[in-house]
Computed example of a mutant assay.
Amino acid sequence: MAARIAHCHCGQLQIVTTAEPYAVVMCHCRGCQQRTGAPFGVGAYFELSDCNISGQSNAYVRTGASGSNFENRFCPDCGTTVYWLTPFHPEAVGIAAGAFEGDDLPAPSRSVWESERHHWVDVPTEDRWIEGRNGPRVGD
């Protein structure tokens, strides 16, 4: 597989991986809404060992909706959050879907924290999830 590259707006902070994500998740929690400035966030999850992170980053640590610490890593120059880490999954890294170049990232396979979802956001129901590409919707 060709390399997937994710980076901040100015390009200073970058992650390169040749691995496939083990999950792509749409999250409706208030923390993701505030982090993105959008009604939900989408993250692709990889094994940290499959990623090469370069550039400078600053950290903002918050308590996630699950109660675990959630460390957002963002570019000190342009402010873009590119990735996050959590002690709940210390071997993994979540990468903001919008930070990837191109459009070959798989569609989300899960939708979580739907109790905080904006009522006007349409999330595919199980009959609209793509067979073999998306798993069941969770969080209802």
Score class of each variant (00 low, 15 high):
47 E>V: 11
20 E>D: 10
61 V>W: 07
58 N>Q: 14
54 S>A: 11
54 S>Y: 02
31 G>W: 09
57 S>C: 12
20 E>M: 00
29 C>M: 04
50 D>L: 01
24 V>Y: 04
49 S>E: 15
60 Y>E: 09
20 E>W: 00
57 S>R: 09
22 Y>M: 11
48 L>F: 09
42 V>D: 05
45 Y>G: 08
48 L>M: 12
41 G>T: 08
30 R>A: 08
37 G>N: 02
30 R>E: 11
57 S>W: 12
37 G>L: 03
45 Y>S: 14
24 V>G: 04
58 N>H: 13
58 N>A: 12
16 V>N: 10
62 R>W: 14
31 G>A: 13
49 S>M: 11
50 D>I: 05
40 F>R: 02
58 N>T: 12
15 I>K: 03
62 R>P: 05
14 Q>G: 05
64 G>A: 09
32 C>T: 00
60 Y>W: 15
18 T>W: 02
49 S>R: 15
26 M>R: 12
19 A>N: 05
42 V>G: 00
63 T>C: 06
45 Y>N: 13
35 R>C: 12
16 V>S: 13
20 E>K: 01
33 Q>I: 04
63 T>N: 09
18 T>E: 14
51 C>L: 01
29 C>L: 08
64 G>E: 06
56 Q>C: 11
59 A>K: 13
50 D>R: 10
44 A>W: 04
55 G>Q: 06
16 V>F: 03
22 Y>C: 06
22 Y>R: 09
33 Q>C: 05
